[in-house]
């Protein structure tokens, strides 16, 4: 493949407003969208703001919207677009813009703090933890999360309704609750924390109507809805309406 010139439209501006700017820029074989943004910085717009770190889909920094789709700039190949297509880059819509492609994602860090942390089991010292691979596998899937917040950006509960941000933690952090709940040794119950109830009452699980949009954009391919949110909903419901199930779970857990 030879080099060609592509047409980009990049949103430039800050809190006070801004707009799409047109650029014509060279594209070479094998490049990803982030390479093109870097070329724009080096040749045409040195102050173009963008976040990135690893350039290999591992850190979750370079999230933005490409032709309206939430994506990682570093994992989107130029070859998925035709040569005459105009490629539009805009910042994540669900978060306030800081400058150009950079948004204020502090909402996510606030939500992260609201989820009670892992509670280590009493009586097990460092080095004494024993867990089977099949039991850690479920939480491990969720720990693949690179915190790109694309799922948060795409979820309509947050994207379309600013007022929901207070009550709804978003798929990323509901999944975190689910992850801790499935951790084989988490002793939250013993510490008086009911993670399932908290998911419902404090993190807004009820707002999720399992559209699976979050799962579709996750660059790590985590089955957020099927594996984290739906099971959490099922168990949260059990607890709310069936005290016996709740008691039963509690007893079984103690024995195990």
């Amino acid at each position: 493949m030879s080099a060609y010139e592509a047409h980009f439209r990049v949103w430039r501006g800050d809190v006070d407003g801004g707009g799409l700017r047109d650029f014509r820029v060279e594209v070479n074989e094998g490049e990803v969208v982030l390479d093109i943004v870097h070329r724009l910085q080096a040749t045409q717009a040195p102050d173009l703001a963008v976040r990135w770190n690893c350039k290999a889909g591992k850190c979750g920094s370079c999230s933005a919207e490409i032709n309206g789709q939430p994506r990682l700039l570093c994992m989107t190949r130029m070859s998925v677009f035709s040569r005459d297509e105009t490629i539009t880059l805009t910042p994540l819509r669900a978060f306030p813009v800081v400058r150009d492609l950079v948004t204020d994602v502090s909402f996510n860090y606030t939500k992260a703090r609201e989820v009670p942390s892992f509670v280590p089991p009493e009586g097990l010292g460092p080095g004494e933890y024993r867990m089977q691979q099949e039991d850690v596998g479920r939480s491990q899937e969720f720990r693949k999360c690179i915190e790109c917040f694309l799922c948060q950006d795409t979820c309509h509960v947050l994207r379309d309704f600013e007022q929901n941000k207070e009550a709804f933690a978003g798929p990323r952090f509901l999944m975190r609750v689910s992850e801790l709940d499935m951790h084989p040794l988490d002793a939250a119950g013993e510490a008086g924390i009911d993670r399932k109830r908290a998911a419902q009452d404090e993190h807004g699980l009820g707002y999720c109507n399992i559209t699976k949009c979050c799962t579709e954009v996750c660059p790590e391919g985590i089955k957020i809805t099927d594996n984290a949110l739906i099971p959490l909903k099922e168990r949260a419901v059990d607890r709310k309406y069936d005290p016996l199930v709740w008691l039963g779970n509690k007893i079984r857990r103690r024995e195990g």
């Binding site: 280590p120 024993r130 850690v136």
Partner: peptide, 22 residues
């Protein structure tokens, strides 16, 4: 080094396991 790794487990880390759960 071993103490530092084991400590991570008590903070919630989930490493891959051996058949006997270590």
């Amino acid at each position: 080094a071993p103490d530092r790794v084991w400590e991570l487990e008590t903070w919630g880390a989930l490493f891959d396991r051996t058949p006997d759960g270590r």
